[in-house]
Design a protein around this nucleic acid. Sequence first.
DNA 1: CCGGATTTGTACGTATGTATT
DNA 2: GAATACATACGTACAAATCCG
Lengths: 142, 142
Amino acid sequence: MILRGQDRVSSQELAALLRDQILAGELPPGARIPSDRWLQESHGVSRNLVRRAIATLRSEGLVVTSQGQTSRVRQVFDKQPIDMAGVVRVEIRMPTEPERNAMPVQVDEGVPVFVIWRSEAEGPELLPGDRWELPGPAYDNG
Amino acid sequence: MILRGQDRVSSQELAALLRDQILAGELPPGARIPSDRWLQESHGVSRNLVRRAIATLRSEGLVVTSQGQTSRVRQVFDKQPIDMAGVVRVEIRMPTEPERNAMPVQVDEGVPVFVIWRSEAEGPELLPGDRWELPGPAYDNG
DNA sequence: CCGGATTTGTACGTATGTATT
DNA sequence: GAATACATACGTACAAATCCG
């Protein structure tokens, strides 16, 4: 009988394990994620599986990774209210990779952007969703 | 001399090739993406590389995939304006995978959500960013 | 309706590159 | 410089869903 992946976690299950720890606050923002090696050995899975799990969390904006450093839970910034003066419409979407690279501040994977059209019908402005928020209707109570 | 991946594209380059065709409208919403096999053979790369490229585009909300069917450029919906009555604050972020599954309508990978707090301080409401938008400041001109 | 072909999903092992510690 | 850690890429195999004759 072949015990192919019998009691081993799937990549989505491993992602869920880590996600739960992050959302529960056991792994707070800035905390180190266990390394690929540690995860693959402690769960008895391949490194590819670990990398897919981490990729899932990265796409969800929960973790950030960079070469040579241990992965970390993504930092949370204080968010500034967007100036709504002259705004016609606001959509949200994920930025493309070139768009992310072109932004004035570093935007991590898994961070959506506000797409803001203002009156004078130029191209829309992109604002990263981890640094900006929309105020309620009371934004015009200057 | 070892010609290791000399003229072969990287996964990010392959993603860029497809992305450009999508953004240029050559692959309009709903269009079929070439299959993994076609892409790996026509570019002389491994299937894993192709899958990483597709995963990138999926995270950017540009393509949708499902088992057994050819991948397609993601459909674009008409967006409804969000009712801003009583809204205190609006953030945006990616939904977690459980959150996506729990939503009343199907939300594809790569689609961010509005997180909307209304006055009565219940838990926030999640609205998928591919079906909703924020109107400009003139939203209270009912 | 059935069965094969196609296509995406998942997982393993291995190897090498590159940045950080 | 060595060790560590993530990034990228190849090959292989099988599962699962769909498509199509």
